[in-house]
Design a protein around this nucleic acid. Structure first.
Ligand SMILES: NC(=O)c1ccc[n+]([C@@H]2O[C@H](COP(=O)([O-])OP(=O)(O)OC[C@H]3O[C@@H](n4cnc5c(N)ncnc54)[C@H](O)[C@@H]3O)[C@@H](O)[C@H]2O)c1
Ligand SMILES: NC(=O)c1ccc[n+]([C@@H]2O[C@H](COP(=O)([O-])OP(=O)(O)OC[C@H]3O[C@@H](n4cnc5c(N)ncnc54)[C@H](O)[C@@H]3O)[C@@H](O)[C@H]2O)c1
Lengths: 210, 210
DNA sequence: TTGCCGCTGTTATATAATTCACAAAGTTAC
DNA sequence: GTAACTTTGTGAATTATATAACAGCGGCAA
């Protein structure tokens, strides 16, 4: 079994890559861990530690080669093939997400949309055809999608997730405010905006008193 | 200084409250930690440990009183007054968030919107007037807002955050894919959807190989 | 050359978060 | 009444995560 890696490290690697792309555009060839750390709001030690998992070496005098490191991270994160995703629930949020990730050259491409609303099914949403949720399995298997995004109402999220699993999807990004009950071999990340907002509100009101 | 509490605990408390509201609607009066744990996908010990910070006691025979606990959590999280928030950047994502949190009876109310686009400023967005970003300080101070949501493009997020601080905002929920550089007395939570999606994609592709 | 200097890579340590384990206490069975 | 359960509350142990510490190396100044 492959050496286990925490999702925090993966997330930071993804952030490093983003930063490296920016540095690349600014024609910066080399960068020190301190610089990366400062831009990302972490410590230099953390940066070096994270990069250890890649087996990528920098030079003590020049730092890390920006483009080489970017490529190395991309190889590590994306493996070989580009990742494809689908999204279920093309409401207000779903449409925004779809518009953001569809097309533009980011590393994950959201290439299929699903809904149950007859007003949406069959029509094109931000340039992609919207399928009926019943077509999920066939479309996903055909396109070999491995990632699903749930932006349906909370009460349908569980059933949508189960349909995704039927369609061989292995990772889910869930915007619905529910805890999905799924087999442990499915990776789930919740993006619960309400929870996040309430957490921010709590600390904001605490800071207010001081 | 008040005993420090981690954001993870705050977030879970908020989730417990959500669950308790549901149980309340189902007319369930008492609940055991095991039940709550199962619904939330955590351990029973964690539930009890989290509830310790409230100083709320359950009964070994009946468990926790649903409504009393809900009220206790609400007092703890919201303090006394209802929290008010503003949102800057009424694009695709901002409009969705605005529509979701404006009005409906959740604990945080997004009651003011700001943008720079002349096509939006002055008009009503999902029932609320959209102000120009230059009015941020005066409006926020007048309404005593303490929370800000950033959904502007990445390259303007830092300047928007600084304007929020000028307006006495103490907590920020940031959707823009940048690390904000702010004084340490401002609480920031990043909702980086791209990072989350890439993280999910990574683990999905890993599961695929096994 | 020689002796610093600043950076990387990595081990050791510290802190944070979670789980284990169990005493205390109410309930039920009989 | 009391023995057997069940669950809470919480100190202790464990695990996860982040920081500190430092050896090793190459450049550079004198
Ligand atoms: N909009 C926000 O900013 C926001 C904030 C916090 C949480 N959320 C959560 O995100 C989710 C989506 O929010 P939204 O505002 O876009 O909701 P929405 O009501 O605008 O959209 C939901 C969409 O899902 C579709 N749908 C319903 N059942 C379906 C099914 N079984 N299969 C496929 N599609 C189905 C509906 O037809 C609709 O188009 C909700 O769970 C909501 O709680 C949204
Ligand atoms: N839409 C998504 O699903 C998604 C996903 C990941 C990240 N994001 C991030 O969220 C942010 C918003 O995304 P979006 O899709 O809504 O973008 P958008 O371009 O649709 O909207 C941006 C809005 O911000 C306004 N704006 C620009 N400068 C401003 C300023 N200085 N003050 C106030 N308003 C200003 C613009 O007029 C526009 O209305 C971006 O940073 C984006 O990277 C969005």
């Amino acid at each position: 079994m492959m050496n286990v890696i925490s999702d925090k490290v993966v997330s930071r690697l993804s952030q490093y890559r983003r930063l490296l792309s920016q540095l690349n555009q600014q024609e910066i060839k080399h960068v020190f861990s301190h610089r990366m750390a400062e831009e990302m709001g972490v410590t230099a030690t953390q940066v070096r530690r994270d990069l250890m998992v890649l087996g990528f070496s920098g030079s003590p005098t020049k730092g890390y080669h920006v483009e080489d490191l970017r490529v190395k991270i991309t190889q590590f994160l994306d493996g070989h093939e580009r990742q494809l995703a689908c999204i279920c629930g093309i409401g207000n949020l779903g449409r925004a997400v779809m518009g953001y990730f569809s097309g533009r050259g980011v590393s994950v491409d959201v290439c299929a949309a699903f809904d149950v609303d007859p007003a949406k099914v069959g029509r094109a949403i931000v340039g992609r055809r919207c399928y009926h949720i019943d077509e999920l399995e066939s479309v996903c298997k055909e396109l070999k999608l491995s990632v699903g995004i749930i932006s349906t109402p909370a009460d349908t999220a569980q059933s949508v997730a189960e349909k995704m699993i039927q369609a061989d999807i292995k990772g889910i990004l869930n915007f619905a405010p529910v805890v999905l009950k799924l087999p442990s071999d499915i990776y789930v990340q919740n993006m619960d905006v309400s929870l996040a907002l309430e957490t921010v509100a709590f600390f904001a009101s605490q800071k207010r008193q001081s």
